[in-house]
Design a protein around this nucleic acid. Structure first.
Length: 599
RNA sequence: GGACCCGUAGCUCAGCUGGAUAGAGCGUCGCCCUCCGAAGGCGAAGGCCGAAGGUUCGAAUCCUUUCGGGUCCGCCA
């Protein structure tokens, strides 16, 4: 737990307020904020305390603010306090109070900004969960990065986080996959059956015609030889009865696809803790158990749904189904749990899956989904409320579509035209760090353009470059310092003990204030489940650092290394080292590796 | 027809869960490198926060209505 200077001042602020308004209720105290000032003219930080308490104290806010000011100026860290506007109190701290942040950063290292707001709450973050029916593509990428960064962020904020992947290996999709792989198997055996002839034998027709299953067919032959096929009179391999091969091929192919998914995730630097198989869960009877539990609570009934208004499917027929009373928990209509053939719907399985996560002890669940699942949020939240008796919350983070741009033109996602961009293609082109950083430069629920040209640009408009460049500059200065002063003198511990009073330039203090705000940002981003804020915070931090660096270009006395002035030099090195530390701390959350130098 | 997301500078986007005069990058315009830290730097212009109501000390932020764009809507996952 590192020092959060804003939180510290806030506590003193509340104490001062209580001294003035003794019967201040806790819920009002909880709303007191101490926030960094946007305008330098307003000091370092401001509070809304007087505005909040004014009504209760039966005093005009401005008067209350004036009373607060009197008490606040007495505080050790406060250099100046003033009432302003409708009842704000602005504070300016002693530079020493700000400078004290630097040793804390240097001693804490990348752990600076760690928080305890999570309180060890067990959180399950489920993300990626791509169907194991082919290689990962751009659509999966954003969810993977957002989920992974969110999980890291929550861990940093003091939650006990599990990263989980739900393998959808139970439905019709994987059966279709098995048929497609089986065709490649027959081809590997040398069958004369054409794709079209084969497709006519497949229930629903042949899907997944991509070449990526060719290798699976070969592997099937290597393992099973001709045992999964029949042969006609010409010894030509033909389709055998599905009960001979379907289950075997399905399991084999899903395993192969998951190997591919894991490889892609490894390329992206995503490592999940738990992989849960839908099929295994269904086999365990968990779905029946979950439905029985809802039934016991009177939440299941047989009924007929109205057709959707304005968009009635052609083949609509009123049909009695097994329904879950999700409208009792905030959903718009009740939702079916069984298909007409008696099998469970995907939703039924998903209820059981979330019930399983609840049983495993998670009190907060976060699902990261694609925007196309937006219509699914309410029913799942309803189900979680129902089955947990309102004790567990489900937050859903939706990731909107990513449009890939090249040369100012959208790259069309078409398998047929060969412009289908797989995840591994993308990583090969721009590297995992740029992919991860860029995916976090937008709010996840806003659409995003991923500009391949910009991501590789070595300019300020590319945040990846701009932040990495700031870190590299820091490291470059520190390397030079080691050469002239020796590694011992430039170690984090030594810098933490140095006299920091030479840090007095406005740009230097601005940078320190920026660094001091890092713990607040981590907490707020974690509570809002918005990892993109980390990317923006690092961009702002890098901007402040580059500004300071640029001052040194015009004014040599502001350069970090001052020959003949070891006092200033060490103080500035402490600032540089602290900056690099916070950048690394943020990049670690994003899963991006810091670079030591730009090449 | 309904649900959810988005709408902020010419463009791409932030806006710290309701705070003060709404920010950044790109683009535009004007300055600044013979060298010592320029894969750039400084400054300016640019806004009815889609629109209209409401809630209150205070709204880009919350509520209602409305207009645009996106996603989705029983037996896909």
């Amino acid at each position: 737990m590192s020092l959060d200077i804003f939180a510290g001042i806030r506590l003193q602020m509340i104490a001062a307020l209580r001294a003035i308004v003794p019967d201040l209720p806790d819920d009002i105290a909880a709303r007191v904020e101490v926030t960094p000032s946007r305008e330098a003219a307003h000091g370092d930080m401001a509070t809304n305390a007087a505005l909040l308490a004014a009504k209760l104290a039966r005093q005009p806010p401005a008067l209350l603010a004036a009373a607060l000011v009197e008490r606040l100026v007495a505080l050790e860290d406060v250099a100046e306090a003033s009432a302003a506007g409708p009842g704000f109190v602005n504070l300016r701290l002693h530079p020493d109070a700000w400078r004290a942040v630097l040793p804390d950063i240097l001693v804490s290292g990348e752990n600076f900004g760690d928080s305890v707001v999570g309180g060890g709450t067990r959180v399950n973050v489920e993300y990626v969960s791509a169907n194991p029916t082919g290689p990962m593509h751009i659509g999966h990428c954003r969810g993977a990065v957002v989920g992974d960064a969110l999980a890291n962020l929550l861990a940093k904020a003091g939650f006990d986080v599990t990263k989980e992947y739900y393998i959808n290996d139970a439905g019709a999709q994987v059966a279709a996959l098995a048929w497609a792989a089986y065709f490649r198997y027959l081809q590997a055996l040398g069958t004369k059956i054409t794709e079209e002839e084969f497709s006519e034998e497949v229930p629903g027709g042949l899907q997944y015609r991509g070449e990526y299953l060719v290798g699976v067919g070969v592997q099937l032959v290597a393992q099973f030889a001709g045992a999964l096929a029949d042969h006609d009179t010409d010894e030509n391999p033909i389709i055998a009865a599905p009960d001979i091969w379907l289950e075997t091929v399905r399991a084999f192919t899903v395993a192969a696809m998951m190997d591919g998914v894991r490889a892609d995730l490894r390329l992206l630097g995503v490592e999940l803790d738990v992989f849960t198989s839908e099929r295994a869960m269904v086999a365990s009877g968990a779905v029946d158990t979950a439905i029985a539990k809802l039934d016991a609570d009177g939440l299941i009934y047989e009924g007929v749904l109205e057709p959707p208004k304005g968009k009635t499917p052609d083949d609509w027929e009123p049909r009695e189904q097994t329904l879950f009373r999700s409208t009792g928990f905030g959903d718009d209509v009740d939702r079916p749990l069984r298909k007409s053939d008696g099998a469970n719907t995907y939703f039924a399985n998903d209820i059981a899956y979330h019930a399983d996560k609840i049983d495993r002890g998670y009190t907060v669940m976060i699902d990261v989904w694609g925007a196309d699942h937006g219509g699914y949020v309410k029913r799942m939240q309803a189900a979680v409320k129902a089955i947990s008796g309102n004790t567990v919350t489900l937050d859903v983070v939706l990731c909107q579509i990513v449009h890939i741009m090249r040369g100012g033109q959208p790259v069309r996602m078409s398998k047929r035209a060969g412009t289908y961009v797989t995840l591994s293609d993308l990583i090969e082109e721009v590297g995992p760090d740029a992919v991860r950083f860029t995916m976090l430069t937008r709010k996840s629920d806003a659409q995003m353009e991923f500009d391949l040209d910009q991501v590789r640009a070595q300019t300020r408009e590319n945040p990846v470059f701009y932040v990495q460049y700031a870190h590299a500059r820091c490291r470059s200065v520190l390397r030079a310092a080691v050469e002239s002063l020796g590694a011992e003198a430039v170690s984090a511990d030594a810098l933490a003990r140095s006299d920091l009073s030479p840090l007095a330039a406005p740009e230097e203090l601005a940078l320190i204030r920026r660094l001091a705000g890092w713990p607040r940002i981590v907490e707020a981003a974690a509570l809002a489940r918005e990892p993109h804020r980390i990317a923006f915070a690092l961009y702002d931090l890098a901007g402040d650092f580059h500004a300071l660096w640029n001052r040194g270009r015009n004014d040599a006395t502001l350069r970090f290394l001052q020959a003949g002035d070891p006092g200033s030099t060490l103080a500035r090195l402490a600032l540089v080292a602290a900056t690099a530390t916070v950048i690394r701390s943020g990049l670690a959350v994003m899963g991006v590796r810091p670079v030591e130098e730009m090449r």
